[in-house]
Computed example of a mutant assay.
Amino acid sequence: MAKKKKVAILYGGRSVEHAVSVNSARNIFEFLDKSKFEPVAIGISKGGQWFLTEGVGKDIEKGKAVSLTLNPAKPSFTVIKSGDKFTVDILFPVLHGTDGEDGSIQGLIKAMDLPMVGTGVLGSSLSMNKIVAKRLLREAGLPVTDFLTFRYDEKDKISFNALSKKLGLPFMVKSASLGSSVGVTKVKTKKDFKAAVEEAFKYDDEMLAEEYITGRELECAVLGNNPPEASLPGEIVISKNYEFYTFDAKYVDPDAVRIDVPAKLSKPVAEKIRKASVKAFEALHCLDFSRIDLFLDKKGNIYINEINTIPGFTNSSMFPMMWKERGISFPDLITRLLNLAQERYDRGKRIERDFQSALKF
């Protein structure tokens, strides 16, 4: 019998999406195929300290504090109190938002030369920053909403009148590098504007204001590499009690949305969305898996809203639902992601990291 691979599930983190990460990781820990893999839960506290935990839960700091040996030839973890060491075969970051989805953790894992599920440093950082992502998507010929961007030092110069003239009313104000609708406000009047700007800059040094699209909110799951494939789109039908798809609508209120998987779309429109989703995935250098969020207006135009390189795996998350509709169960989906990561890591071994020259040093 083949030896089980140890899979370190990284969860929690220094992010406003900490609780979402815990819920996602709990499902991955539970549904991981235990006949092939051995899960190792490593929680990262809100303060940034790493702990080995019994399973996945919110009480991360009750675990055993660990450190990582900075040696890519033999990367290992050490339980600080006892000095016991342990190794893992592959890492699965289930960290949403800041420090988890922006390339930070990905860079650490790459430096340690360990296989890792998901998009690397470049794609993570590109996708996390909504401003950079929109510019690159637009450069790739993909449709995005009109938008304007601002730095924190420009905060007092931002003009409601100029924005409403350019973008129309209502418009959206967002922190540049957050997810789960944190730092996002729908601005309908000048009265809403100042609080919206304060909210956006509360979480980031950059904000964007963008056109509000009246239409349907769609998502498409992308899986694989060379080439990636897209699921059928799903639709999020939001209750009239909500102005848009807020954090509470996503994670707190069970009656806030109805999820249709697949979405009720004509075949040409569904195919258009699938092709655009794969193109967006490739344009932002994503790997293994991502969820692409889109809008469909009443005229049939689609707009790429954003890309989530570590989409949620909670009970209400669309990514696993969309693949379940395609016949891939939750355990099989996790196995496929781990295999994709290992294959990519093995393929990357062909790349030389030494250059022989006549240079003396």
Rank of each mutant, 00 (worst) to 15 (best):
K36I: 06
G327V: 06
F201Y: 04
P39Y: 11
K85D: 10
T189E: 13
P311C: 04
Y242Q: 02
A249I: 05
D99Q: 15
L359I: 15
A209V: 11
G97Q: 01
E54M: 03
K5S: 13
E61D: 07
K34N: 07
V121T: 13
P331Y: 09
A283Q: 06
G179R: 01
I28S: 05
I158M: 04
K264A: 10
P170R: 07
E271M: 10
L148N: 12
A19H: 13
I259Q: 12
F147R: 00
M207E: 08
F193C: 10
E211K: 12
K166R: 13
N71T: 09
F244E: 01
E198G: 08
F31Y: 14
G224F: 12
S21I: 05
T309L: 04
P320D: 04
T98L: 13
K191M: 12
S231R: 02
L296Y: 00
E54G: 06
G55K: 15
F319H: 13
G63P: 06
L122Q: 13
L284Y: 06
S357Y: 10
P75E: 03
T185S: 15
N241D: 14
F295T: 00
L169T: 05
V117E: 05
S175P: 10
P268A: 09
T214Y: 14
S239M: 07
E352H: 15
A209S: 11
K194Y: 11
L284M: 08
I28G: 06
S239L: 08
G43L: 06
P233S: 10
G224K: 11
K155M: 08
S35I: 07
M322K: 00
L108D: 03
F193A: 11
L114F: 08
E154N: 11
F361M: 14
E139Q: 14
P331M: 09
R347I: 11
K6T: 13
K186V: 12
V222Q: 04
L114K: 08
E243A: 15
M207T: 09
H96I: 01
T98D: 03
I302S: 00
P320Q: 06
A111M: 15
V20D: 04
E325C: 06
I28P: 06
R336V: 04
V197G: 03
E306D: 01
T149I: 14
S181I: 02
V261H: 01
R350A: 15
V66F: 11
A209R: 08
L178T: 07
K46W: 02
A221L: 04
F147S: 00
K250V: 03
A256R: 05
M207K: 10
L296N: 00
V184H: 04
V16M: 08
K166N: 09
T185F: 11
K240P: 05
G43P: 03
T69I: 15
I310Q: 03
T149A: 15
Q342A: 11
D297L: 02
M116I: 13
E343R: 12
G63H: 07
S127V: 02
D253E: 07
T87R: 12
E211F: 03
K202P: 02
K275W: 07
N305A: 00
L70K: 11
G57D: 10
S231M: 05
V222R: 02
